[in-house]
């Protein structure tokens, strides 16, 4: 796809040159860990059974926080497209002989790259803080790949949805409204933060269908257990498979909508 390279590089330049976005991106992981680690530390008192065998709450919650970081960055992936349209830059892209979808996919890729950096920082932060992340049963290359795949698939799912929305939405406040509407439900109706045992029955049932739960659970399984048993592996495969199917469908949607519908 011609246009994808230069557009993605533009997107990344805008990101790392903006000191505020760079700084908040660096601080945010510590924030999350400090807040959740201490706010819910009492949960540890329920013992390892409730935490699926995790040695502490940080270790338990890591999968959730990684997923949420991916999710929240992804929700904002369409905002730049709306501003490109407002500021006239989109006009320059639309008169160029590039694939229209490369405009949208540059946002998807740039957001994914940002998420990857944040994931790295967050894991580092979790390892550094006292009573933080502990790999009790080791952490293999396969575990690392599963972790990255889970976060990236969640990222692709939601960047696809939100960049596609931005193809048709022309007002920034509209997309901010949509983001505000969905972010908390996606976070709380999931297993990202709490063990199912602590959730109301109906909430826990609904959370089963949330891709945020799938990613959080998959990461949790590999972080806590290291080498997986056959049945654990099977669950992880199901979660990742679900995420992959959803991501593929939504990426295809993003492709077709952006090829045909994008305009000033």
């Amino acid at each position: 796809m011609s246009g994808l390279g230069p557009l993605t590089s533009r997107e990344l330049k805008k990101w790392y040159r903006n000191p505020v976005s760079l700084l908040t991106g660096l601080i945010q992981p510590f924030f999350w860990l400090a807040l959740f680690g201490s706010a819910f530390s009492k949960i540890s008192a329920f013992g390892p059974t409730l935490l699926d065998g995790a040695p502490n709450y940080i270790t338990y919650i890591l999968g959730g926080v990684l997923t949420i970081i991916g999710l929240f960055t992804a929700l904002f992936s369409g905002v730049n497209l709306i501003f490109d349209r407002r500021l006239g830059v989109l006009g320059r892209f639309l008169i160029a002989p590039i694939r229209r979808s490369s405009i949208v996919f540059s946002k998807i890729f740039a957001s994914s790259a940002r998420i990857l950096v944040q994931v790295g920082i967050l894991i580092l932060a979790a390892l550094l803080i006292p009573n933080g992340l502990e790999f009790k049963h080791g952490f293999t290359v396969l575990d690392a790949l599963i972790l990255i795949a889970a976060v990236m698939l969640v990222a692709l799912i939601f960047t696809s949805i939100f960049t596609t929305l931005a193809v048709r939405i022309t007002r920034p406040d509209t997309i901010f409204g949509v983001i505000n509407l969905v972010n908390l439900p996606l976070l709380f109706v999931s297993y990202a933060m709490f063990p199912p045992g602590l959730m109301a029955g109906w909430l826990s049932d609904a959370a089963k269908y949330n891709p945020v739960s799938w990613s959080a659970e998959a990461i949790r399984t590999v972080v806590i257990n290291g080498t997986l048993t056959a049945s654990q592996m099977h669950s992880v495969e199901l979660w990742l498979g679900g995420l992959a199917i959803l991501a593929t469908v939504l990426l295809l949607m993003a492709y077709f909508v952006s090829e045909n519908e994008i305009r000033e």
Binding site: S2, G5, P6, S9, R10, K14, A96, I98
Partner: peptide, 16 residues
């Protein structure tokens, strides 16, 4: 693009 330099803008267009 206001957030890029003049040169970077032209470079990007040339890549298109």
């Amino acid at each position: 693009d206001e957030d890029l330099s003049g040169y970077e803008n032209l470079k990007m267009v040339s890549q298109f």
